[in-house]
Amino acid sequence: MEAAPPESAAPITPVLVAEHLERKLPGDPPVTLVTDIDLAIEPGKFTAIVGPSGCGKSSLLYLLGLIDRPTDGRLLLEGRDMMPLSGDERAQIRLRHFGFVFQFHFLLPEFTALDNVMMPIRRLGRLSLPGARERASDLLTSMGLGDKLHKPPDHLSGGERQRVAIARAMANNPLLVLGDEPTGNLDSTNSARVVELFRELAHEQGRAVVCVTHDPGIAEVADIRVSMLDGRICEVLRQT
């Protein structure tokens, strides 16, 4: 918490800090996915990670999202070292503080839009069942899906599914929202809508939003643009 970056005009405490992160795949020789990553993710900012295919940007996102484990380096969430945590403790952190949006909507096909959004809320167990239903339904309504609550994913359009997925990512009110090519499968209208939603999450709700993307539209509107090449960060650009 105390590690406030002094160079910034308004001192913002980063929510997630990566120090010398490295991820290698075992083998002979080992394949390096990402290496020497130092990065601070700030709340209220929309961070885009860009770079050519295979540069390691998705791998970095999975490391930042505690889905994958680094082979070296440290990761601090609100100053707390994430490295010594067990698998189940990491799962609990993901549940509580992280929301993921993937290129494919990844909704569970047997469940309605409402049930899908309720799932992380019920798993966390802080709200009663009616409470969870109300929160999920509010989230979906705020994304313009109020009339689609009880539809299963295959009765929704691509854009609608992705908005349900974003609502699910928001379900437990996370500190961080992580997107892996969230607009990769959408047409331009829907893409623009999703980008707009992400900007709102950062600027109006003060969350840290991190998106891995190829989409120049996202890269342009992001507050911070992180460029990667060959598993390393080559440029961090603050845009105004």
């Binding site: 999202g65 889905i67 698998g87 189940d88 799962a91 609990q92 952190i93 993901r94 549940l95 509580r96 992280f98 993921f100 990844f106 569970l108 096909p109 799932m119 992380p120 798993r123 966390l124 699910r168």
Partner: peptide
């Protein structure tokens, strides 16, 4: 398998 991966990313434990 896909749903298992999604639920894992969402924060379900292996025990769940």
């Amino acid at each position: 398998r896909r749903d298992i991966a999604i639920m894992r990313s969402m924060g379900f434990s292996q025990g769940d």
